[in-house]
Amino acid sequence: MNKEYEILQSSKVSRASGFIAIFLIIFLFFAPWWAGRADIRLLSEIFLYLSLASLWNLLAGYCGLVSVGQQAFVGLGGYLLFALTIFSGFNPFAAILVSGILGALISLPVAFLIFRLRGAYFAIGTWVVAEVFRLSFAQIQSLGGGSGSSLPVGIVKSIASSKAMRESLTYWMILGLTVFILLSVYLILRSRRGIALIAIRDNELASQSLGINILRSKLFVYVVTAGLTTILGGLIFLQKLRISPDAAFNVNDWTAFVIFIVVIGGIGTIEGPIIGVLVFFILRETLADLGSIYLIMLGFVAIFVMIRAPKGIWGFVSSKYNIELFPLSRKLKEIKGE
């Protein structure tokens, strides 16, 4: 019996979802023409959370680096935007890009420290780092100390003369970055390094014995994630135009919500954060008036999902119907057999 096989990494569903994604991106690109200002703000926020969630999912779901301190880099990005534009006269968009590089560089010594902690202790270690950042920035009096400061009008005006144009530009930056981040996460996971990461997640001992360098792969992802999260932080506070240590390094806004999105959508899947972010915003837009009751409900939902369906909504759907929108696994197809 001779059979020949072909290794497939795409399917009808995944090709279709690729086309739909392209159309969706084009459609969203034109949002400033068909959507109101409030909708643009909401869309921007959705994209920012989608990006944060995808990055956190890459860290926690694929590398086992469960960070509860990503707000360190969000806040850092915000503060670097303010510092670079106010003190060094950078254009805001240039400042955001430069801050991404700085964020990645700063994450190296941070990683040197916290990679000594394992598992849940790593998680709390990342939190301590975020607290150190928060307390340190609160000491910088020229950026308003503990009470924070606003972006000077001159700098805001330098982005674009009209308010509408400024908001559209920021929106396109956010949309572009989101597409870039989703694509990068996907490509990282499809690369040799990504395959190694998935192998590590599924069996650390076996991949160690196969000579996969775990530490280097994890460090790579940590640094890339830190840089991109810093850029996101810059964009978040370019939208807000005002920063304070408590808002910039807020564990609820930049980490807790992100974790809920990923857990509810499906941790360790590319599709999970997309589903999760939709569920999160639908819940928020309908229930946000409830205030802290809404957060209590989120907490219960997350616990319920973690115990009953640890792979989240997408994990449940994909195991039931065996589909992947962004295929990472390879399927064997018989092309000739006797």
């Binding site: 926690a60 469960v66 849940a120 974790i259 209590i296 997350a302 115990i307 640890p310």
Partner: peptide, 12 residues
């Protein structure tokens, strides 16, 4: 992950 995320939810 599960104990970490469940106790995180509990904290909220």
């Amino acid at each position: 992950l599960p104990p970490l995320l469940v106790t995180f939810g509990l904290s909220i």
